[in-house]
Design a protein around this nucleic acid. Structure first.
Length: 515
DNA sequence: GGACGGTGAAACTTCAGGTTGCCTC
DNA sequence: GAAGTTTCACCGTCC
């Protein structure tokens, strides 16, 4: 098969050819940046004046309260029927792209593996530009065969009367071509390994089994794991026993379980030791927290009781948990700035700072940067600001925000269990402000339904600063600020019923949607 | 003469992804 | 390891 060479870039050419034959394609690349630039390159070769696409492009641009450069770039591509797709996109934008690719409106998506892993979006062609990916200190690595299968599996849309699909790998040389053939076309996929083998998961599961009284002794625990895929793969049970014993020791030390070791038991009996979870352990298990993280939080909170803390202290603690990884990385040019913030906050931190020479130090700095970003969000900076300043995309940020909220919720719960009442308020306040992305002064307003950070700030700027002000303010002024429906709704929320003047929108009448 | 803009090569920087809790309209 | 981005030297043009 011969494909017209329109550009110097084979994947662009194949994508354009796909459009020419009236089909759709997915282009898989190995970085977010590549996904964007490839989509851009393809779209630049295209001309369309499709009205539907134009509308779609507008919707995408307006997905966030203020568009980021990422939104603008995506919107521009979409106006030509091309899109990029990766975890950095806002959730709503991802959804729009997926839906409109299914509908056939968007012809090409250039994407990272996010698409192959998640949603099922079949296309006539799956173009695999990159089969290698950066793997840290191992340099560029071939991606797993399983992942290759995921991508190939997207080729062909039986429901669109395609009786076949095309999966195309792009090799940069003759030798690479041979390698691809050997590894992916003729090669065997890797074995599937149990996820239980990851220590945090194992820890959580052991605590869970004890907490639910599913396992009452080490022997019962061992029996359980022997039956799992994990036990099957590990094969050597003495090895498993050593790991389980170590974890039990940790759980005991952290106060999440109790063993009967205080009573005298002989070595033979040790397998029969009675295991019980403590109320604290039960809560940790209910919260789905990794016990290691739970212990980390508790020790940090103990430190918080001893010293002056700020909201930054808690944000940094949260950023330092395993759950939030991978963190936002400190870029070369940011090191100085991040270290300066670290110095300013050093006295308030409740997490011990590792030595500069420690290999953990990098991640510690990353946790500072992540906390800085959270703090900026609480200071009411928007997604556009975060992208410009830190190169943090809305999608990834949203994900971290959600995680941080969960960890702060768990922190709150643990503090309650331990009666750390002095700091409880600070934790809740931090969580609330982070979740809403607001300064302290907006807290009362945001508690109202349908009032988020943007509307609350608007009200505040216009002198409506709390519930009392909402009561006092004239309905006309409120309508000016928020629109009629919302203004009346707000008055209603605070228990003030105002008769609606006629000529308003009738009940059940809806505005025109975007589609 | 100097400000400005375009161009291309060299230097530099960075690199995929996502499940968990709980609540509320 | 490679792509994408930034930087910088160089040159031409215009006022």
């Amino acid at each position: 098969m011969k494909i017209a060479e329109v550009s110097t870039n084979p994947s662009v050419d194949i994508a354009l050819d796909t459009i020419n034959i009236g089909k759709q394609a997915l282009v898989f690349v190995n970085t977010k940046r590549s996904a964007e630039s490839t989509a851009e390159k393809i779209s630049m070769k295209l001309k369309t004046d499709n009205l539907e696409l134009k509308e779609l492009s507008e919707t995408i641009l307006k997905a966030l309260s203020s568009p980021t450069k990422q939104c603008r770039r995506l919107s521009k591509c979409v106006s030509k029927g091309v899109a990029f797709h990766h975890a950095g996109l806002a959730y709503s934008q991802r959804k729009i792209i997926e839906d409109n690719f299914k509908k056939g409106l968007i012809k090409i998506i250039s994407c990272t593996p996010s698409l192959a892993m998640g949603v099922n979006l079949p296309a006539f062609r799956a173009i695999m530009r990159d089969l290698k990916r950066y793997g840290g200190r191992w340099g560029m690595q071939w991606i797993p065969v399983l992942e290759y299968h995921q991508m190939v599996g997207r080729a062909g849309r039986p429901d669109f009367n395609d009786d076949y699909g095309e999966a195309i790998c792009i090799a940069s040389s003759e030798s690479e071509k041979t390698e691809v053939l050997e590894k992916y076309l003729r090669g065997e996929p890797e074995d599937v390994y149990s996820k239980l083998a990851v220590e945090p998961v194992l820890r959580s599961n052991i605590l869970g089994l004890i907490s639910t009284k599913f396992a009452r002794s080490k022997k019962e625990l061992l029996d359980f794991f022997k039956e799992t895929l994990y036990g099957y793969q590990y094969g050597d049970f003495t090895e498993i026993e050593i790991i389980i014993t170590k974890i039990l020791g940790d759980l005991d030390e952290w106060g999440f379980i109790k063993t009967d070791k205080d009573d005298f038991v002989s070595a033979d009996e040790i397998g029969e030791i009675n295991l019980r979870s403590t109320p604290l352990g039960d809560r940790v298990s209910q919260l789905y927290l990794d016990p290691y993280t739970a212990n980390f939080i508790i020790t940090s909170l103990r430190r918080a009781l001893q010293k002056k803390t700020t909201e930054f202290s808690y944000l940094q603690m949260v950023s330092n948990t395993l759950e939030l990884r991978p963190l936002f990385k400190v870029k070369m040019k940011e090191i100085e700035f991040v270290e300066a913030v670290l110095n300013d906050n050093a006295f308030n931190l409740i997490v011990l700072e590792p030595s500069v020479y420690d290999h953990e130090y990098d991640d510690f700095l990353n946790s500072i940067k992540t906390a800085i970003i959270f703090e900026d969000w609480m200071d009411e900076n928007n997604e556009e600001y975060l992208l410009e300043k830190y190169d943090v995309t809305p999608g990834l940020f949203g994900m971290k925000l959600n995680l941080a909220d969960w960890i702060l919720y768990s922190t709150e719960e643990l503090a309650k269990m331990l009666n750390f009442n002095e700091i409880l308020k600070d934790i809740s306040k931090t969580r609330f402000r982070l979740k809403k992305g607001i300064k302290e002064e907006l807290i009362p307003l945001v508690r109202l339904k349908k009032i988020g950070r943007v509307r609350a700030r608007k009200l505040f700027r216009n002198g409506v600063k709390d519930i009392g002000d909402v009561k006092k303010v004239d309905i006309t002024k409120l309508t000016q600020l928020l629109g009629k429906a919302l203004a009346y709704d707000l008055k209603k929320q605070i228990g003030e019923e105002i008769k609606e003047v006629p000529n308003g929108r009738r009940k059940g009448q809806l505005g025109l949607g975007k589609f």
